[in-house]
Design a protein around this nucleic acid. Structure first.
Lengths: 220, 220
DNA sequence: CAGGACCGTGACACAACGTCAACTTTTGCG
DNA sequence: CGCAAAAGTTGACGTTGTGTCACGGTCCTG
């Protein structure tokens, strides 16, 4: 009786054992999946590979996820869930277009740099192939950006742009430049954000002067 | 003897029967794959599904491709092979930055609109997931863009920009805006290209005024 | 402490994978 | 033209992955 009372009143659950293992199992699976995806690549990984990297039985896996796609989604969503509020907040407090833009890009690129392990490993697949997957949570993040643009426009911050296309452009630049940034040692989040911000603020002619080539001298 | 002589001299092969069916089988597989990918989505498709959509035996499939990934690659590469020269030519004859930029985007968006069947179906997977895959031929296209930017810079056309990041930014905008364009009925290649060009020429403030929201009033 | 709810377990039936020995068709050559 | 070697196709097969479910153990509730 006391136990129940305490549990219901306490803000942080002492957690029944049942619930505890549920959280733990989910975590075990996601951790294992991260390792396996990183090692084999997303495409080559099978549900069985993930299960084997876990102390659990195959049936248990299916109590938590329907497929490897769902596991992948969950991993991506975890990242998206961590960064989405930061991005939104950054834009909410922006007083100028430039703050809106640079805040968004800098936050994103810094996150990517920290989160490199997830971001990069999960995008590397077999061979030279590169797979990108937009999960519901990520799509929600895009939609939030669009709405933030609309809101900024209504506040008179932005000119009356096509919010849908502008959102798409920002998303495209963010992901593609982030990827390049990770492959280069001579450019970090600050430089990437400066580049993207200058592009959106004034176009090509406003871009900071940079080395003309890329970092990769070799390659095909 | 005559046969051999004719074959070796003639520029267009009368084609041995062997070689003929080889081309045909490859085509059969790719056509079947296009249909199956479009119907089931890339992720859900199995090699067996593709084979079943073909009059061939399973062993034959493996004479042509190692996996569904390779089939997918071949399909993508076919598209890339069609558009790459057009893009390069467009940029080669550009006398100003604006021609370079708008030529690239307009050509790309027009291609996407024509090629919609391939472009869209192949990117739709199960549920709301969206998969993008960069094949060697596509990567080569990116590299070509980078080199064209370097060349344009050396001709004094471009300011001394970071060609690597600029290439990434253009690629990101191209793909992401293309995707949006396809989902909207109120914007075609011309509008999409105008948008992207204005963005790169002068940043947000130079963008054409557009409806602020997107086309999709509903959604999540 | 008992009974029930909950959930982990691994064996199972089924489907997909990639291979290979046997077979068929084409080609090169006398 | 005919024949032997080369090339290519076929589908059955062993193997591996898939998703389910009846069983059994553990935790919760009263």
């Amino acid at each position: 009786m006391d136990a129940e009372l305490v549990r219901s009143l306490s803000p942080r659950r002492p957690a029944g054992k049942r619930e505890q293992t549920k959280v733990q199992n989910r975590h075990l699976i996601l951790e294992a999946a991260r390792r396996v995806f990183a090692e084999l690549g997303y495409g080559a990984t099978t549900v069985r590979d993930i299960i084997r990297a876990t102390p659990l039985a195959s049936g248990t896996f299916y109590n938590y996820f329907k497929s490897k796609e769902e596991v992948f989604q969950a991993i991506q969503d975890e990242s998206a869930l961590r960064i989405r509020p930061r991005l939104h907040e950054e834009r909410a407090k922006a007083a100028t277009i430039e703050e809106f833009i640079s805040g968004t890009f800098l936050t994103f690129f810094e996150f990517v740099a920290e989160d490199q392990a997830n971001f990069r490993a999960l995008r590397r697949s077999t061979d030279a192939l590169h797979v990108r997957m937009d999960t519901p949570e990520i799509i929600a993040g895009f939609e939030e950006l669009r709405q933030d643009i609309v809101a900024a426009t209504e506040k008179g911050l932005f000119p009356p742009v096509d919010a849908d296309f502008l959102m798409a452009a920002m998303v495209g630049v963010a992901f593609e430049v982030a990827e390049r940034m990770l492959r280069r040692s001579d450019r970090g989040p600050a430089e990437a954000a400066a580049f993207a911000t200058a592009l959106f603020m004034g176009g090509i002619n406003a871009l900071p002067a940079g080395r003309m080539g890329g970092a990769n001298g070799g390659g095909a």
